[in-house]
Write a protein that binds this DNA or RNA. Structure first.
Lengths: 141, 141
DNA sequence: CTGCATGCAAATAGTTTGCATGACG
DNA sequence: CGTCATGCAAACTATTTGCATGCAG
């Protein structure tokens, strides 16, 4: 993964390494603020601008995926740099990556019907996760 | 549709009527700027804040749907105030509402597998529409 | 060394809010 | 006629940009 940066003539700085690591290791889909907070633990001088710039580079290289949920800020996924469904708990904001094979079939059908050349997609489900359902029953507010 | 506003104790102002009309009549999915521009044709004094406030009211009442694509601003749909798929041309920014029945089945399966109580979803496809494909072949940049 | 990356601050875009004035019901 | 909506401007959040300094190659 670092390879790809080297190949494309990008410099490897400690900050970029740190951001890369965070994106590669986090199972969830952090937003810029979360990444920023993490990076600062190791490099307190890092500015948020650098995070944005690095993310922009990684997007261009195709190593991370930008995901925009309805909540103001964008999130990023460094583990699966390709479109995949999300399952978001609207109560605890947890995000899960479910498996759904049937989707490629749907895409094909859609492409055939409309003449569109489909390059990408986004599929997000919103709901309440099992834990939050329990908490709700327990009278939690 | 105006009924619903009356019922819920909201006042009917000319500005609200204008915004409502635009949302109900536009087949596409305008963003706030577009709505604002339209409203100003009839009510030049209207402020963008009023548009936002009215939209917020309509969202609460459930008469319009907020859609956030990846492009900074939110879009709104006053014709189908319930989740439905979108097909977006990344070249000319056109947005189409395709038919896809198979989706409810997918939702059910997902719900069963994860224990989530799914309340909503969002499904957007990105690609190139037939016209833009032609233009691209013709050497258009 | 040379240039690209960093980090700060200022600029920008989209959206929200506070408050005085005005209009719906 | 009281209350809620409007409209202006200021506040806010997420993001981008300009520029001087610093470090990677």
């Amino acid at each position: 993964m670092i390879q790809k940066l080297r190949e494309k003539e990008y410099r490897i700085t400690p900050q970029r390494l740190a951001i890369l690591r965070i994106l590669a290791e986090s199972a969830e889909h952090p937003d810029v603020e979360k990444i920023y907070a993490q990076v600062k633990k190791n490099f307190p001088t890092t500015s948020i601008a650098t995070v944005y710039k690095t993310i922009s580079v990684l997007k261009d290289v195709g190593e991370i995926l930008e995901i925009s949920f309805g909540d103001g800020s964008n999130h990023y996924d460094g583990n699966r740099p390709f479109p995949h469904p999300h399952l978001i708990c609207t109560r605890c904001r947890k995000i899960i990556d479910p498996d759904l094979e049937s989707l490629t079939y749907v895409t094909d059908e859609l492409s055939k019907d409309t003449g569109f050349q489909i390059t990408s997609h986004r599929l997000d489900f919103f709901g309440i996760c099992p834990e939050c359902q329990k908490n709700a029953e327990a009278g939690d507010k």
